[in-house]
Write a protein that binds this DNA or RNA. Sequence first.
DNA 1: GATTTGACTACTA
DNA 2: GTAGTAGCCAAAT
Length: 110
Amino acid sequence: MDTKTGFFERVYEVVRLIPEGRVTSYGAIAKYLGTAGSARMVGWAMNSSHTKDVPAHRVVNRKGILTGKHHFDGTNLMQQLLENEGIVVIDNQIQEFDRFFWDPNHELST
DNA sequence: GATTTGACTACTA
DNA sequence: GTAGTAGCCAAAT
């Protein structure tokens, strides 16, 4: 890999690979990047995701809660985006999160 | 170069 | 069952 590639870029790349109608957790992405346990790093990367074409709305915490919705323009924008993809979101929490969960380690690691 | 922070996670009381 | 704390690593100040 290009050593020039920043940590953020890797996070964005994985997030971009998330298919529509699917979501993943910070820990799953962190683990895929090799920094398992540092889910905060993913969140930190997402902090700058606004300047990137990253569907950050598909990234939630392990409980399926839209913790980062505050970083979006609207209050329920993140929820609407997910619902637009067929995901049921109630009270900022994804319903049947386990069904919509997309693990890069499981999907990309064949 | 040291300190703070950050959209998390898991354990412990 | 709820609350608080510690641990993770990397970027920003």
